[in-house]
């Protein structure tokens, strides 16, 4: 016993070091909702106030870029409207049908904090629970996909960015509807990887990638990006490098998409899965 104590005393520094490392690593790998919530609450106020100020400044600096994006979106929406008018029947159905009603609700929000240089990047928005934002809502911007709402406080919310190793989204090719899983590899903030598309599918650089709508988070057909490079490595699937349509470096204005029928859809899907 005495020898043991002497041993512990002699190497107490090493033990202290190991203990502190174990604690840090445990916190790091745990990453569960509870401790994250506690930690974030502790610092939310200070950060919220500061980022609001910084966000104000930043949004002023980016006004020109923002105007350009909005103008582009207007043009795109007008084009789609024109397409809808061609077939009057469909247009009528989707807008005035009182039985089906509205299925997505859009809330505009401003980015007040955003990182791109970590492996797990989060975005902070200036809208929260009082504005009707819920966890797992989708977030898009005029040019494309942004992320998924991760945590909501009364006046702020954080978004799991596409540039986060934990982010996955179901995406499809616009031209032939083959779908796969899109994720970020942690390297370059401009590119993401699309997998699970089989070898025989014809994919060329420049092809458009859209969301598939299989996830109940994003509406179908939101712009994700264009194919940059296709490589045939081993395995059953192509490895497709996608140039993201969203420029995360000058993200200012986004829209939060709430799926009004998500609960219903989830419950019926769960019901079928458990059969």
């Amino acid at each position: 016993m005495r020898n043991l104590i002497r041993f512990l005393l002699k190497y107490y520094l090493v033990f202290l070091f190991l203990a502190l490392e174990v604690v840090s690593l445990a916190i790091f790998f745990q990453r569960n909702e509870f401790q994250r919530a506690g930690i974030l609450n502790a610092t939310d106020r200070l950060k919220g106030a500061y980022h609001q100020k910084l966000g104000n400044l930043r949004s002023y600096l980016y006004l020109r870029e923002l105007n350009r994006q909005l103008a582009e979106e207007n043009i795109r929406l007008k084009n789609e409207l024109g397409r809808a008018y061609e077939s009057e029947e469909i247009f009528f159905y989707s807008v005035h049908d009182s039985v089906r009603g509205q299925s997505y609700y859009y809330t505009p929000a401003r980015v007040i904090n955003n990182t791109i240089n970590k492996q797990r990047n989060y975005i902070t928005l200036d809208k929260g629970r009082v504005d009707g934002i819920k966890e797992e809502d989708g977030v898009i911007c005029p040019s494309g996909l942004v992320g998924v709402v991760y945590r909501v406080s009364p006046y702020f919310s954080t978004v799991l960015s596409v540039l986060n190793l934990d982010f996955r989204v179901s995406a499809r090719m616009k031209k032939n509807n083959y779908y796969g899983s899109l994720f970020w590899d942690g390297l370059d903030y401009r590119f993401a990887t699309l997998t699970e598309i089989p070898h025989h599918v014809d994919v060329l650089p420049g092809d458009t990638i859209l969301t598939s709508g299989y996830s109940a988070i994003f509406p179908e057909g939101v712009m994700v990006g264009v194919v940059d490079k296709v490589s045939r490595k081993g395995g059953d699937f192509l490895e497709i490098r996608v140039r993201l349509a969203t420029d995360f470096k000058n993200l200012v204005q986004v829209q939060v998409v709430t799926n009004l029928r998500k609960e219903e859809r989830k419950s019926i899907e769960n019901l079928s899965n458990s059969d």
């Binding site: 520094l13 202290l16 070091f17 502190l20 490392e21 604690v23 840090s24 690593l25 445990a26 916190i27 790091f28 790998f29 745990q30 990453r31 401790q35 994250r36 930690i39 974030l40 502790a42 610092t43 950060k47 970590k118 797990r120 989060y122 954080t158």
Partner: peptide, 27 residues
């Protein structure tokens, strides 16, 4: 060691990376 741990954890609080900076700073 202890001040390294506290420093790292404080920075972690603000960077949404609990434990990451603490581990590096303790080392």
């Amino acid at each position: 060691l202890v001040s390294g741990f506290v420093l790292g954890l404080t920075v972690d609080l603000f960077m949404n990376t609990p434990g990451l900076h603490a581990a590096a700073t303790v080392l």
